[in-house]
Amino acid sequence: MSRESDVEAQQSHGSSACSQPHGSVTQSQGSSSQSQGISSSSTSTMPNSSQSSHSSSGTLSSLETVSTQELYSIPEDQEPEDQEPEEPTPAPWARLWALQDGFANLECVNDNYWFGRDKSCEYCFDEPLLKRTDKYRTYSKKHFRIFREVGPKNSYIAYIEDHSGNGTFVNTELVGKGKRRPLNNNSEIALSLSRNKVFVFFDLTVDDQSVYPKALRDEYIMSKTLGSGACGEVKLAFERKTCKKVAIKIISKRKFAIGSAREADPALNVETEIEILKKLNHPCIIKIKNFFDAEDYYIVLELMEGGELFDKVVGNKRLKEATCKLYFYQMLLAVQYLHENGIIHRDLKPENVLLSSQEEDCLIKITDFGHSKILGETSLMRTLCGTPTYLAPEVLVSVGTAGYNRAVDCWSLGVILFICLSGYPPFSEHRTQVSLKDQITSGKYNFIPEVWAEVSEKALDLVKKLLVVDPKARFTTEEALRHPWLQDEDMKRKFQDLLSEENESTALPQVL
């Protein structure tokens, strides 16, 4: 008996699950189920560990084997000379395990699969056993689809999209007709009724959600790893209520002995410091949205989908001078704002400069500016000194954290500008005749005249004003913003236009 009217009423009120309206889709043409990776026989039982391990490696599972009696060998002398080797079968990115008779397991190899009674669906509900069930008529011709799209860092995100009359449910929550939600590992998919569980979705590319604290899981769906560094790992996640993407940084307390840091400095109150950081608001710094204190720290951040500045300059790639100017102007505005709010970044580098898009002209935002507030000064500097390429001379020669101030950030900005303009770092371990530390503390950077011949004198002058060993003589952010190279009204107008595109209400910060 159909429950279409009941569920449609529920759909009209929406769902609290991570779902959002989605535009129309072009329906895929039908194809045989076997060619799409559906096993030839149905099963109602969950797999054992041996079955799972075989399939996850990209080899055929026991459900897909063919009797050897149906095959015969071709003698080598009868092999056609022009026969080309077969292409290897792509490894599946996800697996659906059937929970009921009449449904088959599915190895997801393609990027898009339609499910329903219509014969054009890649996964067609046409098993005779299924057709005899009382629920068969409640399934729509095109009930739902599972697909994946390219996300940040060229990774993939799996989604389920509801197109049914009676509802598609993920972990008992209604997706909603015309809406989608991301699928995470071990999600249970039910059709027409929330208790009519048909599939379990296994994402073969992500970790299980159960490793994360419950308070975090209640608000966010964790997904793929976006990156990792000395101070922690960053994962893509989704807000459950809105389906908006965020980035979540995970900082290990054990790695940084944060408990010991608190004992050594009783004034170090991470929760208080995070609340201060959350109040920071500038178009060129990453917004801190939320914070969870569990076995590790979880910092929920605004997501930038254009990648890191590092990706644009790695491998001796240089940027156009006009692009360097647009990016560097924004970096200076961001660091100036942090300094005005009493925050020294201490870890400025291309990896911590994020881009809003893949376009050459785009907004940038500074991230990882609050680590000293979370990890403690000593722990952070011990970590950073392991990779000193961007560290100021006074940091390398000081004991502990004494003896330096916000000028350290201006040195790091000078190193970043040098790399963007030239395509190579000013200080490098590859210069074996002088140690990296000695290069930095003496201010002897690697200047290649033929490379810098293409760079304007004004740009080079600003680099020199920032890479000054004496912090008292080094340019401040205010002085850098007043430098002739940055007195470019076309560049500032472009920045204002980019801000307006992102948010019509965002105004250009005042600069002296």
Rank of each mutant, 00 (worst) to 15 (best):
L268F: 09
V170H: 14
E239A: 04
S56V: 02
K255V: 05
I157Q: 02
P92D: 04
L226Q: 03
G167E: 05
F125T: 00
V66G: 09
F144T: 00
C108N: 07
E188C: 01
S67I: 14
P80V: 13
G102C: 13
H163I: 12
E127T: 12
P47Q: 02
H163N: 13
G227N: 13
P21F: 07
L96A: 05
G165M: 09
S223C: 01
D111R: 15
V270M: 12
E107A: 14
I248P: 00
Y123H: 14
V109G: 14
E76W: 15
K141R: 15
R145T: 00
S53F: 08
S16T: 06
F199T: 01
S40Y: 02
V206H: 09
K142D: 02
S15M: 07
I157C: 06
A267E: 15
H143K: 02
H22G: 10
A104E: 10
E271N: 15
S41R: 08
G176Q: 07
G227I: 03
T133V: 08
S35N: 14
S223T: 00
S12G: 10
S210A: 09
G176E: 07
S260Q: 01
I221L: 01
T89G: 06
A91P: 11
G116Y: 00
L191A: 00
V206I: 15
S164F: 01
K153H: 01
H143N: 01
P182V: 01
F125S: 05
N105T: 07
V211P: 06
E76R: 10
F199G: 01
S53L: 10
C121Q: 03
D265G: 05
W93P: 02
K131A: 02
I38C: 12
D77F: 11
K177W: 14
G167T: 04
L268M: 14
F103K: 04
L174K: 07
D126H: 10
E86S: 04
K249I: 01
N196M: 15
L71F: 12
T65N: 12
H22C: 12
V234S: 00
S40A: 10
F103D: 01
Y159R: 01
K119W: 10
Y136G: 05
R262N: 00
H143G: 02
Y72L: 14
S40R: 07
N171P: 00
L236F: 13
D265Y: 15
W93T: 02
F147R: 11
P80R: 10
T68L: 02
K245V: 10
L226I: 11
S67F: 05
Q10K: 08
K244C: 09
K131F: 12
G58I: 11
F238V: 07
T43A: 04
S19P: 06
D77G: 06
K179R: 01
S67E: 05
K177Q: 09
S5T: 10
V211M: 04
